[in-house]
Design a protein around this nucleic acid. Structure first.
Length: 423
RNA sequence: GGGGCGUUGCCUGAGUGGCCUAAAGGACCGAAUUGCUAAUUCGGCGUAUGCCUUAAAGUGUACCGAGGGUUCGAUUCCCUCACGCCCCGCCA
């Protein structure tokens, strides 16, 4: 949610930002300014009346204690006269406040100045590429065939137990999964992130805080009886740890990491996009989150990018880093880098991480603040990224490292996996 | 599932209708003092939102889990809901 002050002082900045993000309903901006003016006007009216009535109530008490019944009665009559009016005004004030809130949550975050113009994924900017493209023979297999050949993942069994998009990892497949989770977590902890193991279901307030509600409830699984939502990413419980708190400035930045399964309904997806591990309803991911001083957040964003990049280097996978264009960025983000790895048998790039700075957009909603040097409260910046999402990493590891004898395990994973090859 | 007790500021925690302008302590900020990784003393210090200011300052209002009600006046009394803790039951 954008802070209201922005509209008063920097309307043009808001408008140009929304245009870059390819947001259509620009009339909302003027509407917000109008409603805000009405709100302030009504607040002034209410405050003045309330001040009068409060003073009267106090004086009634004083008169009563001195036994001046007549004066007290007169004041009571005056108060009674304004009672209806006071109710009216306060109702109108709260209507304006609600309306303003409803309008504000419909506006997306504004993009950072470095965000490229553009509307579609084709217009994303490739920042850099790395890693070596594998050279595979004619008999290269896609990961779902490798998964069957070496008994790693059973997609059919998942259909039976739950439904499509819930693969069952077993044997060496399950072990590879666990190896990756442990490696990622240790790597993050070594970089100063505190490890959490959060709840995998959240309440409405948490889902609202990170922006899944009010709009995107269709993308989450909902336990109706208890009104809990299965998390689509660990970002939700982890960022909400600090919801409604004021942090001491010297504690920033706060760095957190967590493994969690992620649940996504992915309604409407079909075809080759969902083949094998490309898109599933439940998958594992290790997430990193930072709460940052506004002056430092972009520096920290770059640090997170290079952190994730090193993970991919260590896994010896060919990757590229994209700076997303305005039209392809998420609703809440100010700047996003996507990481894609090349899936050598499918011959396509697969997204495995998305690292974003949300500036104060999420924190404003969640009321995560810090006290600055002048002991004023300011809203923190939030950042997060995947480090990393597992299924597509596994897909690429299998496809890119296949050879006649089996599948090679990258050096860094060997201690976690326990052997050097899947065969 | 049954019964009991709770929810107060950045944190801990008092407060049963009007000196609550919310005690006290911690943390934090400032000053004084002391030669050893800090202690002591004094002072300051809630959040949000208006108004007025270039700004600081000043000042109004709201906020004691949420929403309603009673009252001239509610942290305090009543109702509804949410959440938490304890005991019992069931269970890993």
């Amino acid at each position: 949610m954008l802070p209201i002050q922005l509209f008063k002082h920097d309307k043009d900045l808001v408008l140009s930002g929304l245009r870059k993000k390819n947001f259509k309903d620009l009339d909302l901006v003027d509407k917000i300014i109008t409603v805000d003016e009405s709100r302030r006007h009504m607040q002034l009216e209410y405050d003045n009346l309330a001040a009068t009535l409060n003073a009267a109530a106090k004086n009634i008490g004083l008169h009563m204690s001195k036994g001046e019944k007549h004066e007290a009665e007169q004041l009571k009559e005056m108060v009674a006269l304004h009672k209806e009016q006071s109710k009216n005004i306060s109702q109108k004030l709260s209507d304006f406040e609600t309306e303003l809130q409803d309008l504000l949550v419909r506006l997306p975050n504004l993009p950072h100045s470095s965000v490229p113009f553009g509307k579609t994924p084709e217009e994303n900017e490739v920042v850099r590429t790395g890693g070596d493209m594998p050279v595979l023979g004619e008999h290269k297999l896609p990961h779902w065939e490798l998964a069957a050949k070496y008994s790693l993942i059973d997609f059919e069994l998942g259909n039976k137990i739950t439904g499509s998009g819930f693969p069952v990892f077993h044997g060496q497949g399950a072990r590879l999964q666990r190896a990756l989770i442990n490696y990622f977590l240790n790597y993050n902890i070594d970089a100063g992130y505190k490890e959490y193991c959060p709840p995998f279901m959240v309440n409405e307030a948490s889902a609202y805080g990170t922006g899944q509600l009010p709009d995107k409830e269709g993308q989450m699984y909902h336990a109706v009886e208890d009104n809990f939502f299965l998390i689509p990413t660990a970002e939700v419980p982890i960022t909400n740890i600090y919801r409604d708190t004021i942090i001491n400035e010297q504690e920033l930045p706060i760095k957190m990491t967590a493994y969690s399964p992620c649940f996504r309904r992915e309604a409407g997806s079909y075809g080759k996009d969902v083949r094998g591990l490309n898109r599933v309803h439940q998958f594992d991911k290790v997430e990193i989150v930072q709460l940052a001083h506004p002056a430092k957040s972009y520096e920290l964003l770059e640090e997170m990018v290079s952190h994730v990049e090193h993970l991919l280097k260590n896994l010896e996978l060919p990757y590229r880093i994209l700076r997303l264009c305005g039209g392809d960025m998420s609703f809440t983000s100010a700047l996003t880098y996507d990481f894609e790895v090349f899936s050598a048998a499918q011959e396509r790039w697969l997204e495995v991480s998305s690292v974003s700075n949300f500036e104060n957009f999420q924190a404003n909603r969640m009321k995560i603040r810090f006290r600055d040097g002048n002991s004023k409260t300011q809203i923190v910046h939030t950042l997060n990224g995947s480090s990393l999402a597992l299924p597509r990493i596994i897909a690429c590891l299998l496809e890119n490292n296949q050879n006649a004898n089996g599948i090679n395990i990258p050096e860094v994973l060997k201690p976690y996996f326990g052997k050097s090859m899947i065969s």
